[in-house]
């Protein structure tokens, strides 16, 4: 039991590390790969929680995570990047060092916020709530600091990862129906985003989102 909890904590630490890596990564393809790694870690932690607590439905959600977040979504994203010929660096609005510092502050805030909640939770994984929250906030920060629309979608998906992790760590996962629903939403959302990217590029000849400013009402 203790070994399982230790292992989950270790995986949580790795998740946080990956989140920071995503925050500092400039290349889109590497970003997609990091997203896949996050999916692998999530699957592992869910499996460990399932075996540690005997919650059988967590096996299903682990399987779902594996299929969706490790294989399907990264494949779609890779295809998208190839079709859109997005190679090279992603421009950032703020330089990496500052972003990392802000990220550290966010992690502290997240831990601080999670403290009283995790005290109430009776799960073996309760210590990881702070990390889950930190993952959500860091993904959000990534969405804010990136210029290219694809990076924002990856940030959005990774935010969902963080939420999923929070759910497993605090209540052993959401009901199956909700999880299936969210999984489907993410999949459909990615397709919609994909279509949007092609439209945006057709209209503005670029995926740089500051062109979208022109769309506002004068």
């Amino acid at each position: 039991m203790i070994v399982t909890a230790q292992a989950i904590n270790f995986i949580a630490a790795l998740l946080l590390l990956v989140a920071f890596a995503m925050l500092s990564q400039r290349r889109i393809r590497a970003l997609v790969n990091l997203f896949a790694v996050q999916g692998v870690l999530l699957t592992a932690s869910t499996l460990l929680t399932a075996s540690g607590t005997g919650q059988t439905h967590l096996y299903y959600s682990a399987a779902l995570t594996l299929i969706l977040k490790v294989f399907v979504l990264p494949l779609i994203l890779h295809r998208l990047v190839r079709r859109l010929q997005l190679t090279g660096d992603v421009e950032m609005l703020i330089n990496t060092a500052t972003t990392m510092l802000v990220g550290i502050v966010l992690v502290i805030v997240a831990f601080n916020l999670a403290l009283p909640i995790s005290e109430f939770a009776g799960t073996i994984t309760r210590g990881t709530l702070g990390i889950a929250l930190a993952c959500v906030l860091l993904a959000f920060l990534m969405m804010i600091t990136r210029r290219k629309a694809v990076a924002q979608v990856i940030g959005f998906l990774s935010m969902e990862n963080g939420l999923f992790f929070a759910a497993t760590s605090i209540t052993y996962g959401m009901p199956m129906v909700v999880e299936l629903g969210i999984g489907l939403d993410v999949l459909v959302g990615t397709f919609v985003f994909g279509v949007f990217f092609f439209r945006i590029r057709e209209t503005f000849d670029s995926l740089d989102i500051h062109h979208l400013e022109r769309l506002r009402e004068r």
Partner: peptide, 14 residues
């Protein structure tokens, strides 16, 4: 509040 910059909208929600 509406200047059309996605970053700002994200910051609002953040």
């Amino acid at each position: 509040l509406q200047h059309g910059r996605i970053q700002w909208y994200l910051i609002y929600s953040f």
